[in-house]
Design a protein around this nucleic acid. Structure first.
Lengths: 147, 147
DNA sequence: ATTTGTGCAAAGAGTTTGCAACCAT
DNA sequence: ATGGTTGCAAACTCTTTGCACAAAT
């Protein structure tokens, strides 16, 4: 079992959750997918492709559990769909392609400037932030040029 | 009819849409609500409170129409719900309260810095961005202290 | 008069829940 | 053994669609 998996097992244990095969499957899918963000549906489909079919309710319930355990993060995108990523504990944001819907990570975060602005101009107490850039990835731009 | 309304009428006309009472109702609700962002459901409820009840499909279809005409903007929030605001054509972002779910606008936008970063570090072509801060508004903080 | 828009009802997507059987610890 | 977990089916929420009738231009 990979080091990453060991970590997951331990993390679940700490929260009183079991390390079931279904959870393992979901984590493996998140870890190995080329896509950086996966929807519940994509994860569901992937379990079938892997011949480890899970029920939809199992997928949803476990994503919730993994979220609570801090093992995955949820991002809900502009179009209202929720996507999940394995939590690599490094703060980042996403560049999301409007064509292929895949995401790249960027380390850039405008938080500090924002925070200063909010403190100076408002009475709001910030807790978290959400920041995404939508556009076109290199691959899709090349494909578009070709057509 | 208010100047804002005249503008809406004209804008719809330009796109070949009619200026129906139902659309007027929705625009009025968006213009007059204390909340800065309203969900389709909240708009639906409000039409009943105003004794100008609209059907859900009318609400959804017209929000789509108003969106196309550039009269409203849609923001889909962290929890996956879509909210709408009257488009005041001034670029801004939102401070969204995790308790009362109301939103404040801020003029601050990190776009320029982001854009520079993306150009320098990636091959991504940015088109639009999404940026929200979640936290607690003054009113809710005061209420919490009291309890 | 024409064309778009409305209300109704029904269908669709995505997600959640109750329950009996099951499995990890 | 036992308490969390699964699969199934059904429910639920939010949103969309087809259609006949109504309203705006």
């Amino acid at each position: 079992m990979s080091q990453e998996m060991e970590h997951c097992q331990q993390q679940l244990k700490e929260k009183g959750y079991k390390f079931t095969n279904q959870r393992k499957t979901i984590i493996e899918i998140l870890l190995s997918s080329q896509k950086h963000l996966l929807t519940a549906g994509q994860i569901y489909d992937e379990t079938r492709q892997k011949n480890l079919p899970l029920n939809y309710s199992t997928v949803y319930r476990n994503l919730e559990t993994l979220l609570e355990s801090g093992l995955v993060k949820r991002v809900s995108l502009q179009d209202g769909t929720a996507s999940y990523e394995y939590n690599r504990h490094r703060h980042h944001h996403h560049l999301i392609c409007l064509k292929c819907h895949d995401a790249e990570m960027i380390d850039y975060c405008p938080y500090e400037d924002i925070n200063r602005y909010i403190k100076e101009h408002t009475t709001f107490y910030p807790v978290e932030h959400r920041f995404e850039i939508y556009g076109y990835c290199e691959k899709c731009r090349k494909n578009m040029k070709r057509d």
